[in-house]
């Protein structure tokens, strides 16, 4: 679990075949100098895919920039990732004018996994941001309606099942490997 952190040669796209993508990439990099890190931002080899590494406290500004400058309204989803020392939130969007899918991502440190929520800018993220908080323990600060959404009511407070180091302390993953019905008195 080390090599995925850095951008490998499989990601980078050859410039000739991806002219549109590179044009947008350069424009964004020029406009957002300082907010977007060059490390971790690239044009993917798959057609029409861009990835941007954003500074956690600049996420709102970057989203607002895309919404005004590039007319971004289609919010796709949000996926979390565990990178070891850091936790990562990947926001996936689709730009309907250029027909390019972009991913904005922020890394937050494991001991203080917080960044500011963008649900008030784009209501579409209401559920997925709650999900991220539950499953990864990454807290979008300023979420308008924080509440339980995926896990059972009796789930303990600081256990986040999708983190890589979640060790299943209560043996839940073995529980369902049953071999027959329970005895009548056990129900």
């Amino acid at each position: 679990m080390t090599e995925t952190e850095s951008v490998t040669e499989h990601h980078m796209a050859p410039e000739e075949e991806h002219e549109e993508e590179y044009a947008l990439f350069r424009q964004v990099m020029a406009d957002l100098e300082g907010d977007v890190l060059i490390e971790g931002s690239y044009v993917h080899k798959q057609p029409r895919r861009l990835f941007f590494q954003v500074l956690p406290d600049k996420l709102r500004d970057v989203v607002q920039y895309f919404m005004t400058t590039h007319d971004m309204w289609q919010a796709s989803t949000l996926s979390g990732r565990d990178l070891g020392d850091d936790l990562q939130a990947n926001y996936h969007f689709f730009l309907n004018d250029q027909k390019i899918a972009i991913t904005l991502r922020v890394n937050v440190p494991r001991n203080k996994p917080e960044y500011s929520s963008i649900t008030d800018l784009m209501p579409a993220f209401e559920f997925v941001e709650n999900e991220l908080r539950e499953l990864f323990g990454v807290i979008p600060v300023g979420h308008p309606k924080p509440r339980r959404c995926e896990l059972p009511e009796n789930w303990p407070k600081n256990e986040y099942p999708m983190r890589k180091d979640w060790a299943d302390p209560r043996g839940l993953m073995q529980r369902s490997k049953t071999t027959g019905p329970k005895k009548p008195e056990e129900y």
């Binding site: 679990m1 090599e3 995925t4 490998t8 499989h10 990601h11 993917h44 798959q46 895919r49 990835f51 796709s76 989803t77 996926s79 990732r81 565990d82 990947n90 996936h92 689709f94 899918a101 991913t103």
Partner: peptide
């Protein structure tokens, strides 16, 4: 090989997105 992919498709109900991160093994990383 290690890679990250965003696959999209229009399901009967709308857009489906699979975000897949691979790490060189035969199991998905995420």
């Amino acid at each position: 090989q290690p890679n990250e992919v965003l696959a999209r498709y229009e399901a009967p109900r709308g857009e489906v997105i699979h975000y897949l991160v691979t790490n060189g093994s035969d199991k998905p990383e995420r």
